[in-house]
Design a protein around this nucleic acid. Structure first.
Lengths: 114, 114
DNA sequence: ACATCATTTCTATATTTATAGAATCATGAA
DNA sequence: TTCATGATTCTATAAATATAGAAATGATGT
């Protein structure tokens, strides 16, 4: 009897987002964007700062955007990137929820904060 | 002048951990282990439950373990796996910290807890 | 229209990760 | 020791991701 027929979309989305974070380059990009604030940073400058440019940068940004962690808007001939804060926070909460939420009825002894 | 010479180990570790979470299979494994509680679950049973067995399961577990998100201990001929709660929580905090920590001087409106 | 800047797409290659069967190792029981 | 069980390693193949140069696209200023 199979048990893992169709994974919950929630899980799929989370996996995609985590995979997008699973790279030093992209984590650097995200970190830089966080420090840039809500105004965002043009792709060129972003790339200079994190040491990734051209098609490789596009490639990494595409993953962050399609995972919903970064948004882009055009301004003149540049494209500004910003962090999707709510998404990142949501992901963080997902992680906490996975770990601690429903352990209230499962734990055998005390195990609230290790 | 190069800017991205040696990435901070913190970033490397985080990227490894996120990459370990960036798969539905491994996310399912983690979720199942969370529900198993601190006693842990033998690999065989774990695999049955999430629909991944044999060498593939070993492969996924290896990543979770080496990322520090799962721990293993032997009991008889079985190996019990448990979630490293502190690690997962730490990762969750890392994410929050990346997003919100130093935005105190940067944010335009209020954005403390959404 | 033309030149220029910013970014993407195209194309190709290298590297990593995923999947899986078979053989092997490790533990405990008869 | 021999056997059965639980898990890993070995080997091979498929698929996804990373890197990168060149060409193409889109936007702006002259």
């Amino acid at each position: 009897m199979k048990n893992a027929s169709a994974p919950l979309p929630e899980l799929t989305l989370a996996a995609t987002a985590f995979a997008a974070l699973g790279s030093e380059a992209r984590l650097s990009i995200l970190r830089r964007l966080v420090r840039a604030g809500p105004e965002g940073l043009p792709i060129g400058e972003l790339g200079e700062d994190v040491g990734v440019t051209g098609s490789v940068l596009t490639h990494h940004l595409k993953q962050l955007v399609s995972a919903g962690l970064v948004t882009q808007r055009r301004e003149g001939r540049r494209i500004l990137c910003s962090v999707a804060i709510a998404e990142v926070e949501g992901l963080s909460r997902f992680l906490i929820a996975e770990c601690c939420a429903d352990r209230l009825g499962t734990r055998p002894k005390g195990h609230t904060h290790d």
